[in-house]
């Protein structure tokens, strides 16, 4: 399933029980590639958990016959992660709520896409074989992007 330390492709069932293991594997690759501590401990695990959760729960509606594909590339400049599900896709802009407004602050949901976009440098959504969310996190010397 792997293609060396800087590239990884995984396919998992539509089961949230797989999320933590996938995140741990991607984090391990990023640690090995010397991403900053804060990226490894915070930005990457939270954003990737959100993307996988969306793919499994919303994209594939936890349909056991559908899978989620994860493609990871790490190079000298950035981490690029693609999470692909078999759903119909969604409008990234329209679906990203601001959970910090007084109307939304008390909501239980609506923070996932917001966090992905705050913790990653770029979040894109497009159609390929399925619905793809691509997240890019550029390397930087300081760890204070989200602060």
């Amino acid at each position: 399933m792997g293609q060396g330390p800087l590239s990884l492709e995984l396919e998992i069932p539509s089961d949230i029980g797989y999320i933590e293991d996938v995140v741990a594997e991607v984090v391990r690759r990023c640690e090995a590639a010397a991403f900053s501590g804060r990226h490894v401990a915070f930005h990457i695990p939270v954003a990737l958990t959100e993307a996988l959760s969306n793919a499994i729960l919303r994209g594939n509606a936890e349909d056991a016959s559908k899978s989620v594909r994860v493609r990871v590339r790490v190079d000298a400049h950035a981490l690029v992660v693609e999470v692909e599900d078999d759903g119909v896709g969604f409008d990234l802009e329209a679906c990203t709520l601001d959970p910090t407004t007084s109307d939304n602050l008390g909501r239980e949901d609506g923070r996932g896409l917001f966090l992905m976009r705050r913790l990653m440098d770029l979040v894109e959504q497009f159609r390929a074989r399925g619905n793809v969310v691509r997240m890019t996190l550029r390397r930087r010397s300081s760890d204070d992007r989200a602060a």
Partner: peptide, 17 residues
């Protein structure tokens, strides 16, 4: 705790209510 996602935050909001 290592990290919390939006679902974890949502549960805390729900329980606080």
């Amino acid at each position: 705790t290592t990290y919390i996602d939006s679902s974890g935050l949502g549960v805390l909001v729900s329980l606080a209510k």
